[in-house]
Computed example of a mutant assay.
Amino acid sequence: MAFVTLIVLGVMIPSNSYAGVEDILGKWVAKAVTPNGPIELQLEIKMEGNQLVGAMAGLQGSVPLSNLKFEDPDLSLEATLAGTTFKLTGTLKDGKFAGNYEQVGADLKGIWTAERKASSAAAADPAEIAGAWASVAVTPHGDLTVTLDLKQEGDKVTGSVSSETGALPIQAASFKENMLQFDVVFGGNRYRIEALLKDGKLSGQWSSVGGSDSGAWSATRKIVAPAPSAAAASLDGTWNSVALTPDGDNIVFVLELKQAGENVTGNAVAPDGKIPIQKATFVNSVLTFDIQYSGSTYRIQANMESGKLTGKWSAINGQETGSWSATRKSP
Rank of each mutant, 00 (worst) to 15 (best):
M1N: 11
V4M: 09
G10N: 12
S17N: 13
S17A: 15
G26D: 04
G26N: 01
K27E: 14
K31F: 03
A32W: 12
E40G: 10
N50L: 04
L52I: 08
M56W: 02
M56S: 10
M56N: 04
A57S: 15
L59V: 10
G61A: 01
G61P: 00
V63D: 02
P64K: 02
P64S: 04
K69N: 12
F70R: 05
E71Y: 06
E78H: 06
A79V: 15
A79H: 10
G83V: 04
T89G: 15
G90S: 11
T91H: 08
K93G: 01
V104R: 09
L108A: 14
G110K: 06
W112G: 01
A114V: 11
R116I: 12
S119V: 07
P126W: 09
W133Q: 01
A134R: 14
A137L: 06
T145M: 08
D149I: 11
L150H: 04
D155C: 01
V157E: 01
G159L: 08
S163A: 13
S163N: 13
E164W: 04
L168Q: 05
A172E: 15
N178H: 11
L180Y: 07
F186T: 06
G188I: 02
N189K: 14
N189P: 00
R192P: 03
K198F: 09
D199G: 08
L202Q: 07
S203D: 15
D213T: 05
D213Q: 10
G215W: 08
T220R: 10
R221I: 14
I223P: 01
V224F: 09
A225I: 09
S229Y: 04
A233M: 12
A233W: 07
A233I: 09
A243N: 01
L244D: 04
T245N: 01
D247T: 11
N250G: 00
N250M: 10
Q259P: 09
G261R: 06
E262C: 03
N263M: 12
N263C: 03
T265N: 05
A270L: 14
G273R: 00
K279Q: 14
T281E: 05
D290R: 00
I291Y: 00
T297K: 05
R299M: 04
Q301H: 00
E305N: 13
G311D: 00
N317H: 07
E320M: 10
T321I: 03
S325W: 01
T327E: 15
S330E: 15
